[in-house]
Write a protein that binds this DNA or RNA. Structure first.
Lengths: 98, 98
DNA sequence: CGATTATATCGTTCTTCGACGATAGGCGAA
DNA sequence: TTCGCCTATCGTCGAAGAACGATATAATCG
């Protein structure tokens, strides 16, 4: 157990890779910036901002949510998205530690 | 030209997405950590550390190099890889700015 | 020179991603 | 309840990613 670099996957590597994958598309980065700018939440305005089909945007949002970078709260017939500070903080930690 | 959010791609989004894509695989994250640990350079030891075929590792290194996160210097018959501080710093900047 | 070692590249196969249209479900308003 | 808006999900298709073995290139050693 004094091996220098254990051959096992190493959880932190997987974690960072997963978060990075969520960032690995300009549309998703744009969504994050959008949510950062407007402190509050945004509904379908995201669809209007990105120039993509609604279903495509929905998929990007799903990916960001699955990665823990954003969260969506149901607000009547629409959904209010906002940054998920904890997930974002974890991402920053992991990157800063590189 | 007073549009709030111009529909153009926005270079910074593309940049961050590209960098993130380079990080979007555990093997590549691991390489970065490896190079961070051993301050100096490493040759084919990377192949030994990752449990992947040499050609696969070579491809991962190519991707990291293309993203500007590492650099390789020819050292006789082998190649000495090290972190590319500037690229890494740019990545950290962009992520921290989120 | 010939052998050895370290890397890169090529070609293939399989999987995953990204985009779209079509459609279904939920909620508020009329 | 019926209509209309917002969102999610499904199915499909083409593009890109990931892995490998085989092979090519380059430099050192004997």
């Amino acid at each position: 157990m004094s091996r220098r670099t254990p051959p096992r996957p190493i959880a932190a590597d997987e974690d960072l890779a997963k978060l990075a994958r969520a960032l690995a598309h300009p549309a998703r980065v744009r969504v994050l910036r959008l949510l950062a700018r407007r402190e509050g939440c945004i509904g379908c305005d995201i669809v209007a901002d990105l120039e993509l089909a609604q279903s495509t945007v929905s998929e990007h949002l799903r990916i960001l949510k699955a990665a823990g970078l954003i969260e969506g709260e149901v607000d009547g017939p629409r959904i209010c998205y906002r940054l998920h500070r904890e997930g974002l903080a974890r991402l920053k930690e992991l990157v800063a530690a590189l």
